[in-house]
Structure formats: structure tokens, C-alpha cells
């Protein structure tokens, strides 16, 4: 009981600190110097319509690279953690009811649609809201649907790790090309900016976003995969 009271006191004081932060907060009238730069110079410098996508991929490309690595790490460590714990082996997917006819046909019909939508999202991430992460998540939800519908099914490990590693290595290569060909690491001007607003514009942004999409999708699927397989061995 004492712990709850102490936590309450601490959280209350933290609330005061946040409260003071909130009270002192005055929304700016105009964009600050960084935001103004992004607002005005994104089209000429990167050729992308979606400013947030431009920031994510080129301006703060290192962050995104770091972030993709976060997912890569999580997938690897989840596999490590679950590999270590040998659980009760009661056969594969046992104890779950075989999915009904309706579910299977529905899944078979829905999966391509979801995949298509995911690809659409990350292909023109630089034009409309959305991008690599959202697209990847959608792809993963497709894989998830398949897993739920047919728990016994297993994706081939080879494919998943190849997609994941391939997109990762290619992403880093683009970055290194940026270093030699264009202004700096992860600079998107290694490809022509193209005309503003079309699919193949904004230099390497769509390519990078596609790679991110694939990589995120593959990683989420492998996380789900390793969770699913946890009870196999």
C-alpha cells in the first residue's frame, strides 16, 4: 500500500512539472526556422510532395535508418529470447480449432487485396500521407491474417530473412552511394528529381520508402513467425 501512495506522490509531482510545461507552452504564430526551410525548400531540394515523408527519408534519413535497425534488432532478439526458452511441446498449432470454410476462402480473397493496398501505400508515400512504415504494417497484417486463418502454415524462413536482409543492405548501399555520388550519406539526389507530383519523382525517396516497406513488413512477419513457432521446439 505504501508503494502505491509513494508512486502517487511522485506521479503527482511529475504532473506538476508537466503542468508547468503545458502552462508555459505558447503555440508559435509562425513556423520556426527549421520548419520554414522544410516548407519552402522541400520541393526544389527533394521533389517530394509529402514534407513529412521527405523529412523522414532524406533530411533525417539517419533516424529512419536507426529506426529500421530497431525493428531488425527486435526481430532478432525476440527470436533469440524465444529460442532460449524451451516450452512444453504439444505439437504444432494443436488445441486451435481448424478454421472454417468461410474463413479460408475469405482469407484467400482478402490477402491479395491487403498486399496490393500495402504496396500502394508505400509506393507513393512521397505524394500522399503514409509511407514505408504504414505500408509495411499493412503487409504484416496480411501475413497476420494468413497466420490466424491457418495456424499450421509456416512461411519459408529463407524468403523472410532474404527479403529483410536484402532490403537492409540495399538501403545502406543507397546511403553509401549518396555519400559518393551526391551531397552526403542518404542523399536522395542520386536519382533525378523528376517532375513534381509524379510517381517517379523525388529522387531516391520512393525507392527508399519501398525498401523500408518491404523490410518492415518482413520484420513484423518474422516477429509473428517466431512467436508462433515458440512452442514448436
Amino acid at each position: 500500500m505504501v508503494r502505491a501512495f509513494v508512486t502517487l506522490v511522485f506521479v503527482a509531482i511529475l504532473g506538476l512539472a508537466f503542468g508547468r510545461l503545458a502552462l508555459d507552452y505558447v503555440p508559435d504564430a509562425a513556423l520556426n526556422q527549421t520548419a520554414v526551410h522544410y516548407a519552402e525548400l522541400t520541393p526544389p531540394e527533394t521533389g517530394a510532395q509529402n514534407v513529412v515523408a521527405a523529412i523522414i527519408v532524406t533530411y533525417r534519413g539517419l533516424d529512419t535508418l536507426g529506426e529500421v535497425t530497431v525493428l531488425f534488432l527486435t526481430a532478432a532478439i525476440v527470436a533469440l529470447v524465444l529460442a532460449q526458452t524451451s516450452g512444453p511441446t504439444k505439437g504444432r498449432g494443436s488445441g486451435l480449432l481448424p478454421s472454417g470454410e468461410l474463413l479460408q476462402t475469405g482469407t484467400r480473397m482478402l490477402t491479395p487485396l491487403i498486399l496490393l493496398f500495402g504496396i500502394y501505400v508505400f509506393v507513393n508515400g512521397h505524394l500522399t500521407p503514409g509511407g514505408g512504415f504504414q505500408g509495411g504494417a499493412i503487409l504484416a497484417s496480411a501475413a497476420l491474417l494468413l497466420l490466424l486463418a491457418d495456424p499450421v502454415r509456416r512461411f519459408s524462413h529463407r524468403l523472410l530473412s532474404w527479403v529483410e536482409s536484402g532490403s537492409g543492405v540495399f538501403y545502406v548501399l543507397i546511403g553509401v552511394f549518396g555519400l559518393f555520388l551526391a551531397g552526403g550519406f542518404l542523399d536522395n539526389r542520386i536519382l533525378p528529381l523528376g517532375d513534381f507530383g509524379s510517381i517517379f519523382s523525388a529522387g531516391a525517396i520512393p525507392l527508399i520508402y519501398a525498401l523500408i516497406g518491404l523490410k518492415v513488413g518482413a520484420e513484423f512477419s518474422s516477429i509473428l513467425e517466431s512467436l508462433e513457432e515458440a512452442e514448436d521446439h
Binding site: P129, G130, F133, Q134, A137, S141
Partner: peptide
């Protein structure tokens, strides 16, 4: 909008 989509897909979904 970007954040909304991400939050929806990843936050509530996954």
C-alpha cells in the same frame, strides 16, 4: 495524417 495512419496501423493494430 501520416502519424494517424501509423498510429492506427501499428498502435492499435499490431
Amino acid at each position: 495524417p501520416d502519424v494517424a495512419m501509423t498510429e492506427a496501423a501499428i498502435g492499435s493494430g499490431l
